[in-house]
Amino acid sequence: MKITDIKKSFDRFSLHIENLETTTGKIHGIIGPNGCGKTTIMKIMAGLIKPDSGDVDYENLSSREFTMVFRKPYLLHDTVIHNLIYPLKIRRINPDNELVEHYLEIAGLQDYRNQYALGLSGGEQQKLSLIRALIFLPKLIFMDEGFSNMDIEGVAFFEDYILNMQKTKPMTWVIISHQLSNIKRLCDYVYFMHDGKIEAHGEPAEILQDPENVNLKRYLHYM
């Protein structure tokens, strides 16, 4: 997908993104300090916020083919299993037992399948929301600090899982993270945002090593 000349103003903040493009099957990172507009641009890309002006081109991608994982996941007032199969249910896809078991297993939730999802710990809830996003194999995934509540082991496991999955069933990802390690490990391309604008972009090795941009330099210094 591609966004061009997007403008969005709020009371104390305005966003202007001239150009942001995703490449099919690649993982894109958006980094930047708090309040720079990362989540806003992601929500605009995901169709959750309407921009004041500009163009969002999904290039034949329907709204049913992408999803978003939030920092604070929304879980249904239902069991783990019902949460997991919700995207399949609304697509009238009969959940394949093996598939369900596979995803429960990677999140370590096999024993909790019939438990109330809101009773899970923060990290488990995050894992559940991530496997729920993956289960219907979307073409595009937006992830806003989707690893934030997970322990180091869980993060490493999911990083490996995503990287392996990219080899067999590549999806397009747009990730927001404050963990440079996530970005370095996962991303093929990185956008750095500051004060509502993209100030630098490129491959991680290219822009994160010795950045020219002063704001990016300062941001990386404190990470």
Binding site: A46, Y86, I90
Partner: peptide, 19 residues
């Protein structure tokens, strides 16, 4: 929050209302 979740899951209007 519920409607945002429903949209990100790909739910249509009717499914969003039911949810």
């Amino acid at each position: 929050r519920i409607q945002t979740f429903a949209i990100t899951m790909g739910a249509n209007k009717r499914q969003t209302q039911i949810l």
